[in-house]
Design a protein around this nucleic acid. Structure first.
Length: 863
RNA sequence: GGGCGCUUAGCUCAGCGGGAGAGCGCUGCCUUCACACGGCAGAGGCCACUGGUUCGAUCCCAGUAGCGCCCACCA
């Protein structure tokens, strides 16, 4: 073995070996309880970023541990066709050749996207392999593969037949860049500086005017009414009158409607039913006409008269100017308001009246709310449940049609002869109403999230009753970022309950975003993104994984810094060298894959085994709560501070002893082996490599999670460690070489010390102990460890001030302990009301502190 | 406007009723036979602020301030 850990060399071959071995498939543990996670399918639009790495690593840590615990584990991978995003990428490529998708035509364009998808898919899946994702590739799915497309159709048709899916003319969010409708949550709002424009609309009867206020002056071209609140006395006289729409010379009525807020602006609002959801509502209540004034590019259309052809923002300026010239402009106020942008291309969306397909979500939300309320599905951390409830309770209908070509085409046909709408699983050949054959399929495709919503069961074979579906639905866990709770989690809950009658998963584990060291969002557009693949190349997958896992607390954002990857690699090196040490003392390949704990461990081995047991217990608790950063923090400290810093050092003397040598070597082997197992979910490559050296029996990826018996630790260990620390402090205070041997007289009135101390003191701190009282303490100094005092000769200690300093520091520490305990014990209410064991503990502390103080004080006096 | 969260060592964070913790960084000593990607020792904190509950509060409650996020038909 090389003396230095080299991630690249270690990571080269293992993934292939794992994948070919079948260890990633549920069949690896055919008799275990099912445990299933479906991967949130990454978009096939390109590369995995640090957010994916975080998400996948949490998955992999959960999955690898559960697999080792004997569950019949399925981690199902797949990718999402990502409608708008993917189509946009391919259109951009075409644009470079000066082409649009219309030049190719629908069929050829979609074919081109498929080709692009194949390329991109290969990239994404290769990256997942580099990360080490232990997914079952034999069950990989794609949202547009045959089976999932069948599921989509099935769902669409069934919901249509239940009148949950319907087609209607409504205000939707239109992206003028992508030329498609968006759902409400695909719009991101941003506070923007703007202005509130006050416009005078003259009454047709010549009795003055009414003033309305708007942030979007250009939409006045589409006004078909003015509304006021029915109780607003300022305008009672105006209701029922008509006004002339300036610039358009259209006569429009003044109506009274509850939706108007009298406090806002002038209390009179212009009504543009075709370009504002509220206005649309008001308009339909009062029978106002809807005049669409924009093209799909958000330029003014022929309904805008002289302004036709202007972009909406130019129109705003020009209309305002025309209003001013016509003396209709009352005044203008500055005002910030929030403006919606397309979540894909960041273009300002346009509220736009159009004919679209919708899901009426109301019948679906009740069961989805109940399932979380009664705990069939729980969120981790739980506080996300509040957001979920609030969201679900205020849901509006979901616009599911998109005017793009890449996606699941809506299975609706329109009969050219009788206008019949046909919604069917199989493509119809003739109209069931008039038998006509002039059938035209709806041009639109479904929202990408429609197929995503079915992912927990469509991937398992639904609507077929496959064995996988029976075994793995409901899924066990869902791991995802909070940013797609609404996009995805809520919809899976609704669809899962509707079609499977059971929740899609029991636990929803929410993680945060990956941030830069200075706490900013990591994003490609900000140019501060770190590519996980670059990190893997330069530092290795294991170091990247450990760095992320250590920082990933549930629901917390993850600050990412290359320093932490460095730190993780250093840990790998430490582990590597610890294993090298162990391999210097146990026969390579001789450590059993399971068990093998010594029957009769010596005290040092008993100590490390007891710590191992306690660490595993605690680790399991933390990991079961998805607290992997805490779990691996605990393990990291156990491995480094206790096993490497203490036990490996202790083992050197133990192995030299004829009596305890064999048990020590055995202990070194099994402790190291269990560390490999415990670390494996986080750093699979290096642990697998070391497993081969140490155990060489099957794959660590398929080995069993450790479960050692509890062992009692020797009680003297704590005092021993304190004594060693005291001796080291003494040496450090006087800059005495660690090699220089010291003789130490030990006073042990309570007989705490055990025989194993002597060899260890010699080995760890080059101290030769002599038991028994000193005739005179003159010329000696003390190291105090609980009841034990060690007397060290002062010859060779030139600097008595340094020694005084060492003793005074120890003394003041003891004095603080004493004062703290004494203050509590002097309080009668404390003795009265605190639990007896707490009082006893404080008394014990005071006694011990007092004893230590007196020993140190007499030493200081003698100096 | 409504809701959620955060404020602990220089940095990133854990702890959440009974003696302030980790990693990184920093200081000193040590190239000791697994490891200098290391070892040993050490410095560093009115646990945001103000009240309250309690024998006891970093931890529970109320309020204040600052920061962050989400939601809302701010015409």
């Amino acid at each position: 073995m090389k003396p230095t850990y080299d991630p690249a060399a270690v990571e080269a071959d293992w993934y292939d070996i794992w994948e070919k071995s079948g260890v990633f498939a549920p069949e690896h543990n055919p008799d275990g309880d099912p445990f299933c996670i479906v991967l949130p399918p990454p978009n096939v639009t390109g590369v995995l970023h640090m957010g994916h790495a975080l998400n996948h690593l949490i998955h992999d840590v959960i999955i690898r541990r559960k697999r080792m615990q004997g569950f019949r584990v399925l981690w199902l991978p797949g990718t999402d066709h990502a409608g708008i995003a993917t189509q946009t990428v391919v259109e951009r490529e075409l644009a470079r050749e000066g082409l649009t998708r219309h030049d190719l035509g629908r069929e050829a364009f979609v074919e081109q996207v498929w080709q692009w998808k194949a390329k991109s898919h290969a990239t994404v899946t290769r990256q997942m392999r580099q990360l080490g994702d232990s997914v079952d590739w034999t069950r990989e799915r794609f949202t547009m593969d045959e089976g999932l497309s069948a599921a989509v159709r099935e769902v669409f048709v069934r919901l249509y037949e239940k009148d949950i899916i319907y087609r209607g003319n409504r205000i939707i969010n239109w992206c003028p860049q992508d030329h498609t409708a968006l759902s409400d949550i695909e719009v991101e709002y941003e506070e923007t500086a703007g202005e509130l424009v006050f416009i005078n609309y003259p009454f047709t009867d010549g009795s003055g005017h009414i003033t309305v206020a708007t942030t979007r002056a250009e939409t006045m071209l589409g006004d078909t009414g003015v509304a006021v609140h029915p109780d607003d006395e300022r305008y009672t006289h105006a209701v029922g009158k008509t006004v002339v729409l300036p610039l358009m010379d259209r006569e429009i009525p003044v109506v009274a409607d509850d939706a108007v807020d009298p406090e806002f602006g002038t209390g009179a609002v212009k009504v543009t039913p075709a370009h504002d959801p509220n206005d649309f509502e008001i308009g339909s209540r009062h029978g106002l006409e809807s005049v669409n004034i924009f093209t799909v590019e958000a330029e003014v259309n022929e309904n805008g008269g002289q302004f036709a052809g202007l972009d909406r923002l130019d129109a705003r300026r020009v209309v305002k100017q025309a209003l001013a010239e016509g003396d209709f402009l009352d005044h203008v106020e500055e005002r910030t308001h929030s403006v919606g942008h397309c979540y894909r291309c960041n273009t300002i969306v346009e509220p736009y009246l159009s004919l679209q397909w919708f899901v009426n979500v109301r019948p679906l939300v009740g069961p989805a709310i109940d399932a979380v309320r009664d705990g069939r599905t729980r969120f981790v951390p739980q506080r996300w449940e509040n957001s979920y409830f609030h969201w679900m309770e205020n849901l509006r209908d979901w616009c599911i049609s998109r005017q793009i070509w890449w996606g699941h085409r809506i299975p609706a046909w329109y009969c050219g002869d009788c206008d019949q709408v046909i919604v069917a699983i199989e493509d119809p050949v003739a109209c069931p109403n008039c038998a006509g054959s002039d059938l035209r399929q709806d041009e639109d495709v479904l929202d990408t999230w429609f197929s995503s919503a079915l992912w927990p069961f469509s991937t398992l074979g639904w609507p077929e009753e496959t064995p996988d579906l029976t075994t793995f639905y409901p899924n066990t866990v869902l791991v995802t970022g909070f940013d797609i709770i609404y996009f995805w989690v809520a919809r899976m809950m609704k669809m899962g309950l509707e079609f499977m009658d059971q929740v899609p998963f029991s636990d929803v584990v929410i993680h945060g975003l990956v941030r830069t060291p200075d706490g900013r969002k990591m994003s490609k557009s900000l140019g501060n993104a770190i590519d996980p693949l670059d990190v893997i190349e330069s530092h290795g997958a294991d170091p990247l994984r450990l760095a992320i896992v250590q920082a990933a607390a549930p629901g917390q954002d993850v600050p990412f810094d290359m320093e932490w990857v460095e730190g993780a690699r250093k840990f790998g090196n430490k582990l590597w060298n610890a294993a090298r040490f162990v391999l210097g003392h146990v026969e390579p390949g001789s450590v059993p894959a399971d068990g093998g704990y010594p029957e009769d461990p010596g005290p040092e081995a008993a100590w490390v085994l007891s710590r191992l047991h306690a660490t595993i217990e605690r680790f399991n608790l933390l990991a079961d709560e998805y607290r992997f950063s805490d779990a691996y923090g605990l393990l990291y400290n156990f491995a480094w501070s206790e096993v490497f810093d203490w036990y490996l050092e202790l083992s050197k003397a133990s192995m030299a002893d004829a009596g305890s040598g064999a048990a020590t070597r055995q202990t070194l082997g099994v402790v190291m082996r269990d560390l490999l197992k415990l670390f494996h979910p986080a750093i699979p490559y290096v642990t697998e490599e070391l497993w081969k050296e140490l155990v060489d029996d099957g794959l660590l990826a398929g080995a069993a999670w450790p479960d050692p018996r509890p062992v009692a630790a020797p009680r003297s260990m704590e005092v021993f460690q304190e004594l060693v620390g005291g001796i080291r402090r003494f040496r450090s205070s006087h800059q005495l070489s660690p090699k220089r041997g010291l003789t130490m007289h030990i006073a042990d009135p309570e007989s705490v010390a055990e025989p194993w101390w002597w060899a260890q003191l010699a080995s760890l701190v080059a101290v030769a102990p002599e038991l028994g009282a000193l005739e005179s303490t003159q010329g000696f100094t003390r190291v105090v460890a609980g009841p034990v005092q060690g007397f060290l000769p002062l010859d060779g200690v030139a600097d008595l001030d340094a020694e005084r300093n060492r003793l005074e520091r120890a003394l003041s520490a003891a004095e603080e302990d004493y004062a703290l305990a004494d203050r509590k014990l002097s309080n009668p209410s404390f003795r009265d009301r605190a639990p007896a064991e707490i009082v006893a503990k404080e008394e014990q502390k005071r006694i011990e502190a007092e004893a230590t103080m007196s020993k140190l004080r007499s030493q200081l006096a003698e100096l």
